[in-house]
């Protein structure tokens, strides 16, 4: 689902955030992306969500080379990926329902379908009774779950999360991670950037470790087999016909 092949990223301020990083993540895998602050975790997520393009190397996401994708196709590309942020990025003046529905609204999904899927998404994160509440009326953990519901409403095959438990107490953090685990169990590739080693250890999933923009370890697959970097990644499934879906 995701592969990085010798990817480097240099920002306009000349800082090289990633240097020759290669790894692959297959469908239905849950992977933690770890490393200290400034290690390059956020840059990896930005490259996957096409918020940035690689300076060198190839980033393939769901069969799409993000380095060569025309700008006009970026919105459709982003609709295939669920993204969860540490600061939730919710629209604070809109109720939970509208926040969760946003990815479907921008995709011109029929209203009846939106209604059905918003309720299903909120059910999945246990917030069905909060759909009329404003985000400011929710706890931090609930706001994070709204962010997750929004990320998964388009039924993405890839879910990425940037420090999703950063502001949460251990109990809430565990609850959020269990939500991610449930999506992994239904075949979604989940990549969670986190530096909470205690939490990561509890889940025992594969870890990709970055340090100062370089790859220290691409981790061990859940099966216990050493995970081989890039070249032996599982074959990519066919990219869904984006235009037809629109």
């Amino acid at each position: 689902m995701i592969s990085f092949d010798n990817v480097s990223k240099r920002y306009p301020n000349r800082r090289e955030a990633l240097s020759n990083v290669s790894f692959s993540i297959g469908a239905g895998e849950m992977v933690f992306l770890t490393g200290r602050s400034g290690a390059g975790k956020s840059t990896v997520l930005k490259l996957i969500a096409l918020l940035e393009r690689p300076t060198r190397g190839t980033v393939m996401v769901n069969g799409t080379n993000t380095g060569t994708l025309p700008s006009r196709k970026i919105p459709a590309f982003r609709r295939q990926i669920g993204v969860v942020f540490q600061d939730h990025k919710l629209l604070m003046d809109r109720p939970v329902y509208d926040n969760v529905a946003l990815p479907l609204i921008v995709a011109d999904t029929p209203l009846r379908e939106i209604d059905k899927r918003v309720r299903a998404s909120l059910d999945q994160v246990g917030l069905r009774d909060k759909e009329r509440a404003l985000p400011s009326e929710l706890s931090v953990g609930e706001q994070q779950r709204v962010g997750i519901a929004r990320a998964v409403i388009t039924k993405p095959r890839i879910l990425i999360a940037d420090e999703p438990t950063g502001n949460l107490d251990p109990e809430l953090a565990m609850e959020i991670m269990r939500v991610f685990k449930r999506f992994q169990e239904v075949g979604v590739a989940v990549l969670v950037a986190s530096h909470d080693t205690h939490l990561i250890d509890q889940f025992g999933q594969r870890e990709i470790v970055l340090d100062d923009g370089t790859l220290l370890s691409a981790g061990i697959a859940v099966s216990g087999e050493p995970f081989r970097i890039s070249a032996t990644a599982p074959p990519m499934p066919e990219l869904p016909n984006i235009e037809a879906r629109r």
Partner: peptide
């Protein structure tokens, strides 16, 4: 600005 950023983040096109 914040609303526009979020909308683009979840796949909103410039036209939308």
């Amino acid at each position: 600005r914040a609303e526009i950023e979020v909308t683009k983040l979840v796949g909103g096109s410039n036209a939308f």
